[in-house]
Design a protein around this nucleic acid. Structure first.
Lengths: 109, 109
DNA sequence: TGCGAATATGTCAATATTGACATATAATTG
DNA sequence: CAATTATATGTCAATATTGACATATTCGCA
């Protein structure tokens, strides 16, 4: 479990370094990262569900395709603000957003 | 209803300009601002509940008292990231965060 | 009232985030 | 197999956000 979560973070481009470092993440940091992952996952799900390309979504929110790609890749240069804006622009309902938080709660355990 | 919401935004320091401008806010923008307001309210509630001063909370999250004050005042210079970090650092449970989103849904209608 | 603690407001240099762009790499279609 | 479309990656100047600091204001209490 811990391993897969670590791999998620690393795949997402976070400089986690080692497993020890990861385990030393404070609860606060870990919760924030987990929340980001949940929201990111919700963005992609919502975008696909509405059959929007990354360019489509970028235009809706006046951003760029590369930014959308970075959002979905979990790039650390992307803010929570941008993730949430993407989620809203993708057509996600508030219920969808809540669902992401629920998923987050499960992960954060 | 619309008026009180507008007043909230203005009180929070947003350059809304006029009621027309406010009404021209896109749904996306309105939802994002409403979400911010909900989370901000949750931060203050959580901080008070735990009897933390702004300085206490600032130390917990390695920020400064003035930043906490700005968070709670809804200052536009505060990011969603910082608001959520404050919410987590204040001791809010994930359930509290979800509740904030639920309140947001009610507001956004 | 006066005093101390808490909160609010304004500023700014340092840092983080942004859209835009070029370009690379899939994935899809004919 | 191209050709087309979608997605990924790297860069950077412009802009936004940050903690820190000074200082003002408000609040509770003796």
């Amino acid at each position: 479990m811990k391993t897969s979560k670590l791999e998620s973070l690393q795949a997402a481009g976070w400089k986690v370094g080692s497993a020890e470092d990861f385990l030393q993440l404070s609860d606060e940091e870990a919760r924030l990262v987990a929340l980001r992952l949940s929201l990111i996952s919700a963005v992609k799900k919502s975008r696909i569900k509405r059959k929007l390309s990354q360019i489509d979504l970028a235009q809706r929110m006046k951003s760029s395709q590369s930014r959308i790609a970075k959002i979905e890749a979990g790039d650390p240069s992307v803010s929570l603000d941008l993730i949430v804006r993407a989620l809203i622009a993708s057509g996600a309902t508030t219920r969808d957003i809540q669902a992401a938080f629920t998923a987050n709660e499960r992960m954060a355990g």
